[in-house]
Design a protein around this nucleic acid. Structure first.
Lengths: 244, 244
DNA sequence: AGAATTTTCTGACAAACCGTCAGAAACGTG
DNA sequence: CACGTTTCTGACGGTTTGTCAGAAAATTCT
């Protein structure tokens, strides 16, 4: 029974194999590196069988992205539970985002590919909404922390400012920075020797600009964030510790 | 002579036609929307003729991106010449970046497509270096303004901070925000009703975090930026004035 | 167990696309 | 007008995607 897996189990298992191999192919050479011909032959099945699992190539890609976002949401939730004042918890989210992107650069890359090309409209509504939900959840986790900061009086939102705008700032800076880092092959040519450190610093500059306490001058965020990485994601951190 | 264009002129002119129509097709339906078959037939020439101008499909796309970056560099140079203290001039760069992305959303979109998919290595070294030069120039323009700020004592870079890191922060925030705005069809679902205003605000939060004077509390940047838009890019601004 | 039915798999097929290249057409020049 | 050069063409080979009728395997029924 267990040693002799049933047909059903084999089918479920194959979906994982498809995704795993697909990711490898996409990462190695982009959208066009994912050929259903070689994918199926390498998996030892015919192309028709692949189409029993996914209605088109684009669905495979979107499935990969959903895997990605789900993993990040998990990491965000874990980081949000860190004990400390809200601004420190937001820093923990930053730690999670950085570890995620450094540990799984391929995930981030696939995300970029799917979003930029117009493959979106070829995909099913179910997968689309799944992805949107994941996105809203991630934003929601961060928004909750910002609102905690407001509730505890550490952060005063002046006229026009909203918790969502703060999250948007953090999000866009991380998104843009990681995108630049991933696509620009020569960061040092631009004078940035340690891009990830620069992102962390700029994050805190912005939050200081919002006057969210404790300010960077009153709290050692660099050391603290390193500690969070070790404490919250020990296994993951170990893999990138030397270049932190 | 002018009414009867020579063969040479016709060829030069066709390159523009190719790029113009290509951009339209890419914008309408992404990378796969650009079919050399329909492109050539719609232009009234054979596919072989297209290949006299560009060695492959990817070269067309990269040429589009170079057009884009060149236009932005022009706008940046124009904005950098604005009269005022360095931080105000950096705000002018922000105005240029925003007007650019709002006026030519298609340009930005094509940029995203080219960078994310792995079409880079199929393109010629000449075009690649052209693009890199453009990028370095844009960063250089901004870096110069930051250094002016330091030179005039308006901005003090503490330990670890560099002019390049400041530029990187502004750049990544803009890049990320515009990318999120372009790809997320429902900003309001995320609680951001006026995303472009949020970007401008977050930019200034970060610069306030660097304590670059004049701070946002001492200078009315929102009003000032609107004025810059009208003064520096009157024609362009008119087209987006109502939603500024 | 053996037949019948349902599920799953296959690989040939049609359609679309890219890039090439030998030959045709247009051009320019003496 | 004749001859060399530039430019253009469209058929061709190679590749990929998605489909589908029929084969094969699994499951259920008698």
């Amino acid at each position: 029974m267990d040693t002799q897996p049933s047909k059903k189990q084999a089918i479920v298992q194959r979906e994982q194999q498809i995704l795993k191999l697909s990711r490898k192919m996409v990462v190695e050479s982009g959208y066009h590196g994912l050929s259903l011909d070689t994918l199926s032959s390498e998996l030892g099945v015919s192309r028709g069988t692949i189409y029993n699992h996914f209605t088109c190539k684009e669905e495979i890609l979107l499935a990969l992205v959903i895997e990605t976002m789900d993993r990040r949401r998990e990491m965000f939730q874990h980081a949000a539970a860190f004990q400390g004042p809200p601004r420190v918890r937001i820093a923990a989210i930053g730690v999670a985002a950085e570890i995620f992107v450094r540990l799984y650069p391929d995930h981030f890359l696939v995300e970029q590919i799917v979003k930029s090309d117009s493959i979106w409209d070829k995909t099913s509504a179910e997968r689309q909404s799944k992805m949107k939900i994941c996105q809203v959840q991630c934003v929601g986790i961060c928004g909750g922390i910002v609102r905690d900061g407001v509730a505890q009086g550490h952060l005063v939102l002046q006229e026009g400012a909203t918790a969502e705008a703060v999250v948007f700032g953090l999000w866009s800076m991380a998104e843009g920075a990681y995108s630049i880092i991933a696509t620009s092959d020569s960061m040092s040519d631009l004078g940035i020797t340690e891009p990830f450190m620069a992102v962390r610093d700029n994050w805190h500059r912005m939050l200081d600009g919002y006057r969210w306490e404790p300010l960077a001058c009153d709290f050692d965020y660099p050391t603290s964030m390193k500690g969070m990485a070790e404490e919250l994601f020990p296994d993951e951190y170990r893999l990138i510790a030397d270049s932190w």
